Computed example of a mutant assay.
Amino acid sequence: MSTPKPSTFPRNTWYVAAKAAEVQDQPLGRQICGERMVFYRAQEGRIAAVEDFCPHRGAPLSLGRVCEGKLVCGYHGLEMGCDGKTIAMPGQRVRGFPAIKSYAVEERYGFVWVWPGDREQADAALIPQLQWHDNPEWAYDGGLFHIKADYRLMIDNLMDLTHETYVHATSIGQAEIDETPCKTEVHGEAEVVTSRFMQDIPAPPFWQMALRSNGLADDVNVDRWQICRFTPPSHVMIEVGVAHAGQGGYEAADAHKVYSVVVDFITPETDGSMWYFWGMARKFNPGDAAVTEQIRAGQHKIFSEDLEMLELQQRNLADYPERQLLKLNIDAGGVQSRKIIERLIADEQAMPVLQAAVA
């Protein structure tokens, strides 16, 4: 008997599975943590999620339709309930049909959140709070990428922004990022923070645009900050911005700065692929839709550059699995984040053993 491959992602936790707007009249099939799921709107528009597997002939339920809040298989018309139990099938008795897996799922902040593990452990209170959602002082927009790379590579990427100097040289990169040391701290058992504060430097093109959009001069030096916060299972929020130099930097009054949070929800699809939900919540000039679109387009270009780098990095790592990678001080944020992920996985794997011992 072959030894099962160890898991590379926690399951008893909340992941972003989709943007809420993706789940409307038709079911949405998506693979999360190696499991094929189908998301749909049941009675009264409530989000539901079950295994994407019809118990009749194994057809994907995501190829079916939603009728009066019921998920109908597109192969032979089997009707599936939110609890994974078959409701009915034209001309057939379905009482003996085996149930399929159903998932704890929540719609919040414009996203669909799913708990891939034991639904009895799912607690909606554990979904992170997003202060900027539906807040008139903030504006938000973003997108979704499917990336053929291990989700942990994206966490490494976001917890070490030194790469901006090279990968994003024409937008947010500048030499001062390399020249300014970063600081990494671990807060408790579930947060890693890597921060970098740059003083009295020129603003790169992206931040010049942001300053102009907020009615601020873009041809003077600025103080710039990057504060990357990892929380499990794979969420990274990055406080970013610039203020006119000498006005207090990160603590400057709103009249002298542009402040945003880069939103990164990284959801593993398989061991070598991910769903990457990205966006920017900004706390300046929130009512200007043109600025919102300009920032979204700029982010799309920036993250497209990351996509290419990560997919080719994944290819190299797959081709040379025996090679040991170097770990430098700039890698501390990613290293500490991975330690938290590894601990969560180990705790989940130990739980069945502990339960069996107690029984």
Rank of each mutant, 00 (worst) to 15 (best):
K5V: 14
T8H: 11
A17Q: 06
D25H: 15
V38G: 00
F39H: 02
R41C: 05
R41M: 08
G45R: 07
E51H: 14
D52T: 01
L63D: 13
C73N: 05
G77V: 07
C82K: 04
M89C: 13
M89V: 06
Q92H: 13
I100V: 15
Y103C: 02
E106I: 04
F111E: 02
W113Q: 02
A122Q: 03
A125W: 07
P128D: 07
P136Q: 14
E137G: 03
D141V: 00
G142W: 01
L144C: 11
A149V: 10
Y151T: 00
L158D: 03
M159V: 00
D160S: 04
H163D: 12
Y166T: 13
G173C: 12
G188W: 06
V193L: 15
S195K: 09
P202T: 06
F206R: 00
Q208F: 00
M209Y: 05
A210C: 14
A210N: 06
D218Q: 08
Q226V: 12
P233K: 06
P233S: 10
A253R: 13
V262Q: 07
T270M: 09
M274N: 02
W278A: 07
N285G: 02
A290F: 06
E293V: 09
Q294K: 13
I295V: 15
A297M: 12
S304Y: 13
S304M: 13
E305H: 09
E305W: 03
R315F: 04
L317W: 07
L317F: 10
L326I: 12
N329Y: 11
I330H: 03
I330K: 13
I341E: 08
R343P: 03
V353E: 15
V358A: 14
